[in-house]
Amino acid sequence: MITVSDLRKTYQQGSRTITALDGVSLTVPRGSIHGIIGHSGAGKSTLVRCLTLLDRPTSGSVTIDGRELTAVKDSEIRTARRRIGMVFQHANLMDSRTAAQNVAHPLELVKTPKADISSTVARLLDLVGLAGFADAYPSQLSGGQKQRVGIARALASDPDVLLCDEPTSALDPTTTDDILDLIHNLTDTLGLTVLIITHEMNVVKRICDSVSLLEDGRVVEHGRLQDVAAQLDGKLSRALLPLPAHRPGRMPALELLLAGDVASGPVLSDLGRRFDLSINVLAGSVENLADSRFGRLRIEVSELAPVEEMLQYLQSQGVAAKVA
C-alpha cells in the first residue's frame, strides 16, 4: 500500500518561488493499479522525483507498506529506493549492456552471487516475454522490447511498488496495449502495487483500478474508475467518456450519463415511449470500464417536450441527466 499525504514541493527560481506540488495526497491499496493523469506542467514529473526521493519533498510524507520513505536518512535512501521498481518513458537502458546485463544491473549493486543473478535474470526475461533476447543490445531491440527489458529490470530488486512514468508515451498503439497488458498481468502474478503516471486516458481506461487527476500540483479528482466515470460533470468522466465534436441543434438538448446495468437497458426507447417523443442522438460515447458499461449521450428533443419531468424520470431510473 502506498500512502502519500500532503506532499509539497517548491522550487526557488531566481526570486520567484514555484510550487510544483501543492499538497498531494493519495492512497493506493496493495495489489491495485492507480493512474495519475495530468497535462504537462501539472506536476507529474515532480511527483515521480519526490516518490523516488530523487528530489526531497519540501513537506509531506510518502509511506510504502507502513514504512515512511521520506523519513529515512540520506545514508538509507538507497535501501529504501530498492523497494520501488521504476519504469521510464524511454526505458533508460544502458546501451553498453545487453538485455540480460541490464536486468542484472540492480542485482550487481548489492553483490548478489553470480549464479543467483543469472537465474533471476533468465526468469525475469522469460516473464516479460524476451527469453530469446538475453544477448541483444538495446540498439538491436524495438521500442516495446526495450520497455519490456526496462520492466524486467525494475522487477529485479523484488520491489513492493512499481512506479511507471509515462511507460507507453513513446510507443505505438498496439505496442502500448501489449505493454499495458504485461503490467496488468504482472500486478496479478506478483502482487505488486502499481502507480502509473501518464497523460494518456487510454492507459487509465485499459488497466487502472483507480485514478487521480493532477492539475497545478493538486489532486482535483480521485477515486475508483467506476466512481469517477459515473460523475455527470466530472472532468475525469468527461475525459473517460468524451463526446465527439458535434454541431448543436436548434432543439433543447439533454446530457445523460448511464452507469452500470442501466447503460445496457433501453433507456432512450423507454424515454421516448413514455413521453411520446422522438429523440435524436447528437453525440455519444460508450465504454467498458472496470468491467461495467458506461455511456454519455447528448440527445435532442422537441421544443414542446416536458424537460423537467423527463429529467425527474431519468433520475428515477438511475440515469444522471441535465439540460446541456
Binding site: T52, R78, R81, F88, N92, L93, P106, R153
Partner: peptide, 23 residues
Amino acid sequence: GKIDAALVMGSTRMQVVTKVLLR
C-alpha cells in the same frame, strides 16, 4: 535518464560513475 535509472535502483554515486558514466 540513465543516471536517474541507476540512482533509483539503489546505486551509490561511485557505482553511478563506474557502472554508468564511464561505461
